[in-house]
Design a protein around this nucleic acid. Structure first.
Length: 576
RNA sequence: GGUCCCGUGGUGAAGUGGAGUUCACGCCGGCCUGUCAAGCCGGAGGUCGCGGGUUCGAACCCCGUCGGGACCGCCA
């Protein structure tokens, strides 16, 4: 039907008679003798000159045949890639008329209520922005596949109807027709199957897998999302990081044209100490500074005896943050569990202005200023509390004060390694809770700490972080039953419970599980950042709203009684 | 489950207790031979999300509810 794409016609085509197909982006009529019709496809628009009356409206689908010619002098449009040329003596075929769209099919729709965009998603996707985003996504998928294939990973598809598992995120359930009362779950991830594929000798598995979690939605979370899911046999942690790094770098290069440098590594403890979060945003400074030693002998009651005192220097923020904003920050710190937040402003003469300055000795003040390299106009914020609280609170405040939009460059990838094996204590059992999942390999140097200091045991677990967003995580898995039993014991899980809860998963290991490890990272998040979007809905063709509905299809809908009867289900009455 | 913000013709905004909801874009009709998200003239189009309350009077204040969004919880 067409010989050229609209956005690709150039001066070299002058003299050729060509046909383009697309949608009418705009029509400018000048009497009955002359009309301009801009035709749009996903490559762009081209101006078509019609020398007579033509009845086409916005978004009519047309095929236009004409001869490419240079535009008249003075009518070149430098804002358009096709602005040097136009199609003349055009014949217009209307392939399909169209109703006026509810919003303009261009960047003006960026301001339209998102619900309306989702209700008419097929029109929204017609826009340049969404076309670009979905094509970026396709490039990422393609580059990842290429990188994984090149490393001898084998793509294996795992089932979508799986057994419900006891741990982890809330699952979507699918009723079984053959066995009324029984349910399948939709997979939160292919975790179980990919590890069994290692037992099965697949050696290197990967899949761009759809995962489903029935947890509340966010800017970076949807019910359904896509992961690069991978698992490798006979590998060290560094092997896994290297393999995934190649996939991520290939994806980034495919989109940006630039290959990121080798992804740096940082231990979890360093990340917490320096940035106060396990997903540090390395694009800006304002790092946490250790101050405990400076105030070791302080008279100031709020600091005296505190396990950990840290501070950040919000450089140049003294002016900007008035009393109200400082109070708000203090409230936020308290909400997060800190006893308080101390602020000090560096005055023009270098002295400290603060309600608490009078409690700090001259030596302490001098040491503080030196440690934080504070200059006039700087704002110092200090938290004194337990180590984790101090880090977390200051990390959050650091992000609040300094973090650029996630899409803003440069891209700073970082592997956060050596996550703790256990985090916190279960309120009911008083036993440690698994940091990642209970099948993570403990760090070999920490095996003797299981009994003495379990909370300090590191795991062979790692996260990939980009600009403060967690892209994904992985670990080396336990493949021996004695070590697995040791971890279960620490978690307070008896042999009997372990068999009941995880037997279906662990029993196959008895037939010869190789040492193995893997990783999974969220494609939606990576694509969003590479596409310059701060919301993954912008890179998903048909996403759900925050309450889990689809304004276009009206899903979820109420099934008819016959369907329910067949499934042996009696539903609650719908909400009024 | 919680906190905060938003809801006014098709779309985006203005109006925060008082006359007839205002403006831009879009839409419909007319004019127009070089425009380019054209220009000019005219026109149609709104239960101000919904329900209740306060008031002489409510788009505006109060309560509830529905829908949307950001965040917390949650996401082993």
């Amino acid at each position: 039907m067409r010989s050229n794409m609209c956005g690709e016609v150039r001066a070299i085509h002058i003299g050729q008679t060509i046909s383009v197909c697309g949608w009418v982006a705009s029509r400018r009529e000048h009497g009955t003798q002359l009309a301009f019709v801009d035709v749009r496809d996903h490559t762009g628009v081209v101006q078509c000159v019609v020398d007579n009356d033509v009845d086409v409206r916005s978004e009519f689908v047309v095929r236009i045949t004409g001869t490419v010619r240079a535009r008249l002098e003075g009518t070149v449009n430098p804002n358009l890639p096709t602005g040097e040329i136009e199609m003349g003596e055009c014949v217009v075929e209307v392939l399909r008329t169209a109703e006026p769209p509810p919003f303009p099919i261009d960047s003006r729709a960026d301001k339209v209520e998102e619900t309306t965009r989702l209700q008419f998603r097929y029109l929204d996707i017609r826009r340049e922005r969404m076309q670009k985003n979905l094509r970026v996504r396709a490039k990422v998928n393609s580059a990842i596949r290429g990188a994984m294939e090149a490393q001898s990973f084998v793509e294996v598809e795992t089932p979508m109807l799986v057994p419900s598992t006891p741990e982890g995120a809330r699952e979507f359930l699918v009723p079984s027709r053959k066995e009324p009362g029984a349910f399948y779950a939709l997979p939160q991830s292919p975790q179980l199957f990919k590890q069994l594929l290692m037992v099965a000798g697949m050696d290197r598995y990967y899949q761009i897998a759809r995962c489903l979690r029935d947890e509340d939605l966010r800017a970076d979370r949807q019910y359904e999302f896509m992961q690069l899911d991978a698992e490798m046999s006979f590998v060290s942690q560094d092997d896994v990081l290297a393999a995934i790094s190649l996939a991520v770098m290939a994806a980034a290069e495919a989109v940006t044209g630039e290959r990121p440098p080798t992804i740096e590594q940082m231990t979890w403890r360093d990340a917490m100490n320096r940035f106060g979060v396990d997903k540090p945003d390395l694009r800006f400074g304002m790092e946490l500074n250790e101050l405990t030693d400076i105030f070791a002998a302080t008279e100031f009651k709020a600091f005296a005896g505190a396990a950990c005192i840290k501070g950040i220097n919000a450089t140049g923020k003294a002016e900007e943050l008035g009393r109200n904003k400082l109070d708000a920050l203090t409230d936020r710190a308290k909400q997060m569990g800190a006893k308080g937040l101390v602020w000090l402003k560096v005055a023009a003469d270098g002295s400290l202005e603060s309600p608490v300055a009078k409690f700090l000795s001259a030596d302490e003040q001098a040491a503080l200023i030196a440690r934080l390299e504070a200059k006039p106009g700087d704002l110092i914020l200090i938290v004194a509390d337990a180590w984790d609280t101090t880090c977390e609170v200051l990390g959050q405040i650091r992000n609040d004060l300094g973090r650029p939009p996630v899409w803003q460059g440069p891209y700073r990838y970082v592997w956060v390694i050596e996550f703790p094996l256990f985090v916190g204590l279960d309120k009911e059992t008083g036993k440690p809770k698994p940091g990642h999942h209970p099948f993570c390999m403990p760090h070999p140097d920490d095996l003797d700490k299981f009994d003495t200091d379990p909370m300090s045991v590191r795991a062979m677990a790692y996260d990939l972080v980009l600009n403060g967003w967690e892209l994904g995580s992985g670990s080396i898995r336990i493949h021996k039953s004695d070590l697995q039993r040791k971890v279960f014991t620490a978690l307070g899980i008896s042999d009997e419970d372990a068999e009941k809860k995880f037997g279906f998963f662990l029993r196959p290991f008895e037939y010869g599980a190789p040492p193995h490890g893997g990783f999974a990272f969220g494609i939606d998040r990576l694509v969003a950042i590479l596409a310059g979007e701060e919301n993954i809905r912008e890179v998903i063709a048909f996403p759900k709203t925050q309450s889990g509905t689809d304004p276009m299809t009206n899903a979820p809908t109420i099934p008819n009684p016959k369907q329910l009867a067949e499934l042996g289900i009696r539903a609650m009455p719908p909400k009024a």
